[in-house]
Nucleic acid binder design. Sequence first.
DNA 1: CTCATCGGTAAGTCTCTACTAACCGTTAGC
DNA 2: GCTAACGGTTAGTAGAGACTTACCGATGAG
Lengths: 102, 102
Amino acid sequence: MTNRSLAFAALAEPMRAEIVERLAARPMAVGELAALLPVTRPAVSQHLKILKAARLVRDRAEGTRRVYSIDPAGLGPIREWLDRHWDKALAAYADAVEREDE
Amino acid sequence: MTNRSLAFAALAEPMRAEIVERLAARPMAVGELAALLPVTRPAVSQHLKILKAARLVRDRAEGTRRVYSIDPAGLGPIREWLDRHWDKALAAYADAVEREDE
DNA sequence: CTCATCGGTAAGTCTCTACTAACCGTTAGC
DNA sequence: GCTAACGGTTAGTAGAGACTTACCGATGAG
């Protein structure tokens, strides 16, 4: 699976999207996140594992706690893919309109 | 489910991402798509239904054929969401760095 | 060293989804 | 009207994944 599909799949899950929103506001530890969300800590841990694989979050050790924050790396590929294909679609559309004028 | 989550979930499926890529190159009918992809026509039809619900594709009738093309409408919400939260994350990060200097 | 806290992992369950085969409605040409 | 082509829908199945409880390793305080 491509890294881009990993990122889309990660963000498709509403709970993971909310985790990203929380971490975007400020970095947080796992237990802190779990306390704010309607799921158990292991569930949060599993979501973070998936977000990390998609390079959407990073983590750093801080004593026994692991503080997670947004990783900008995963965003690039999906932004680029979206821009590329939608631009292509618009170009193809403009092309079709032009051809109709003939 | 939000429209944004619909769009992310739609694009998370590799087969649907490929359908989007094909349609970005040029609008196509359902059977035409199915002939190019390693799945049956009903599968393509179901994928298109999901992409249409996410407003990522449109369709127009053309005789008995239905020609599908990219719909720009679904792109906006996800681009906006990505930009908003990643900008916020970067701002929060800059803020944290600044606080460390104290 | 001991014990509590923090967090990742394993096992099991339940729901969701991607797919195929079979069917049905609709349009176009003869 | 009849028939063929096109495509959406249904029913059924196999696989993925989101969640919980229970467990285990690692760090830090006393």
